[in-house]
Amino acid sequence: MTLKNAPAYIQLAVDLIQILEEHELDNDTVLKALTLVTQDFENKRDNVSIAP
């Protein structure tokens, strides 16, 4: 399977990994940032209003 045929979430994960590695940040910094990002997107997902 090529990345081109992979699901969108796999493609995004690979892109994010590449971006983070290019910035040469330490692992703890990256993990803390990803925790915040995860919490933010979970909050957005959970607070979506469903239009009548």
Rank of each mutant, 00 (worst) to 15 (best):
T35I: 07
E24V: 10
N5L: 09
K44C: 05
D28Q: 15
I19T: 09
A51H: 07
T38D: 06
L34Q: 07
V14A: 07
R45H: 13
P7R: 07
N27S: 15
Q39E: 15
L25Q: 03
L12M: 14
S49I: 11
I17P: 00
T2D: 12
V48K: 13
S49T: 12
I10M: 04
I19V: 09
T38I: 07
I19C: 00
A51E: 10
N43T: 14
P7M: 05
L12S: 14
L31Y: 11
V30L: 03
L3K: 02
K32Y: 11
N5Q: 13
D26S: 04
L34H: 02
L16I: 11
E22C: 04
S49A: 10
V30Y: 01
V37C: 06
V48G: 02
N43Y: 13
T29R: 05
L36W: 08
K32Q: 14
V37H: 06
L34T: 03
P52G: 05
V30E: 02
D40F: 13
H23T: 05
D28L: 13
D26R: 05
V30C: 03
L20E: 05
L31D: 12
E21C: 08
I50W: 01
M1Q: 08
I17M: 08
M1Y: 09
A8C: 07
T2A: 04
D46R: 14
N43P: 01
P7Y: 04
A6M: 01
L34R: 04
L16W: 07
L16M: 13
E22L: 09
P7N: 04
A33F: 14
L34I: 04
N43W: 12
L20R: 02
N47V: 08
L31C: 07
E22A: 10
E22Q: 14
L25D: 01
I19M: 02
K32C: 06
V14L: 01
E21R: 10
D26P: 04
D28P: 00
E22V: 04
K4I: 13
L31W: 06
H23Q: 15
I50L: 06
T2F: 02
H23M: 11
E21D: 14
Y9V: 09
D46M: 10
L25E: 03
L12C: 08
R45Q: 12
T29I: 14
I17C: 08
D26W: 01
A33R: 08
E21A: 12
T35F: 05
L3G: 01
D26I: 02
V48C: 06
Y9E: 10
M1L: 09
D15K: 15
